[in-house]
Design a protein around this nucleic acid. Sequence first.
RNA 1: GCGCCUCUAGCUCAACGGCAGAGCAACGGACUCUUAAUCCGCAGGUUCUGGGUUCGAAUCCCAGGGGGCGCACCA
Length: 506
Amino acid sequence: MTIEADPSGEESTTQYLDALSAERRKKREDLSAQGIDPYPSRFDRTATAAELHTRHGGLEADQRTGETVRMAGRLTSIRGHGKLSFATLHDVTGSVQLLMQQANLSDQAKAVLAAFDLGDWVGAEGEAVTSRRGELSVDVKELYLLSKALRPLPDKWHGLTETDTRYRQREVDLLANPESRRVFDIRFRAIAAMRRHMVSEDFIEVETPILQPQAGGALARPFFTHAHALDIDLSLRIAPELYLKRLVVGGYERVFEIARNFRNEGVDTRHSPEFTALEAYRAFGDTTEGMELTEQLVVRAAESAIGRMTVTLGERTVDLTAPWPRRQLLDMLEEVVGRRLHPTDPVEEVRSVYRERGVEFQPEWGSGKLIFELYDALLLPTIVNPMFICGFPVEVSPLARHTTDDPTMADRFELCIDAKEFANGYSELNIPEEQEERFQAMAVAAARGDLEAHPSDLAFVRALEYGLPPTSGIGLGVDRLIMLLAEVEAIRDVILFPMMRPESSS
RNA sequence: GCGCCUCUAGCUCAACGGCAGAGCAACGGACUCUUAAUCCGCAGGUUCUGGGUUCGAAUCCCAGGGGGCGCACCA
């Protein structure tokens, strides 16, 4: 059935009509004609599904409780038997069965029931009972339509599978696919647990700019935008790091931010242009404290979100039980390539390892960068259970302090799980002159055309000149942690509304 | 950006050069204990879009669009 467009000729979703939604609209109008408001302003609920199950969960079949309840939720199933109908009402806590006997329903309830479709938001009032089969139910007397679903729901058994519809219309995915809801429940429980842990460790949660004159704190290509009021170009942040350290200079000895970061880079199963990181800075510590905190955060998140320490991804089983091994990067590389590499080695010597192994490299990479990339290519893919890898070349760590005994190696660690980097932490560089030199080295790289070179940030250097105490910093990839805990392989499955191309109008 | 795969009814999927179909949802009907309810009946299509080949195209070819996966960049 085709229905003509509105005479105005404008397109809008409310003008979308087909036979199915027209049917639902008609039912809504029928109710209105009987004086029943299809969009009431409120409904006083006295129990959620979970509360009802808690209160009356143990009852035997065919019992009455004498308790009248008012419940609300989305109608997900109707099973009609002539003068008796069953329905499933789903709310945020779970679901409960409605038992609707014609003989018990008020006249209004009968009219409302006749107008119901799957997907409608409904309210029901009646006695809490158990059915003859023993299922806790509401023996309904009054029924209310709270809001009409004008569009039909996806298949009640198969749900919604098409990935682009799932991402673009996440609301439909969430209401149709319990698995999707499960993933996001894990996400938000895990984040809440990490936030609680940070607060219990006396970290203060702060907010730093997303719109920045210069995107720093990481090596990545930023997004750009423009502020009309000031007529200046701005970047979206790629990391909150520099601002958080300025807060430590300002006297916040323990700060953290759960920060949305934006990187104008590739999109795949492990990377989203918009992603969430937890960054934390703690005065007077070094990587020892950073690794402890990282380990605790992941363990707390797992305990709270999934209640266990093992997860399975495809064929791999990951055991998150702490403590996790801490290995030196150069030791591990030595075991794999059979000789000890060091950032002070001549470039040609490190390149020879690449040639032996058939690994590609860029001609502008120095020995430090070459060593770092070997870690990515040779070590990372072999790691399954959590492992801290410690000691990275200063050349690839422009914001990290060098170790006390080696000016070319940074006191830095990465946390690897399931062949992916989950966290990065270091002892923060707090010597202003050295920071400025590192920035200058980066400026040379930028001049060569490196879009990801860290820009000089003189405001940050000036802050360091007021004195940054010894500080332990960490950054934890929240989305990847959620992927791990929820046992899913695509980062888009853990982001409610992932970046997509706009829906085409044609 | 390159390669491979994919797009059919509201949803899940068939048909793979020869009349576009099924299940669920919807609609009409039967049914007072179902829970993927069952049974009878009925309806539902720009086969992503535009070209082409062919007597005939959902199917083959070309171009475009959306999405997925892999590679590259990155966390």
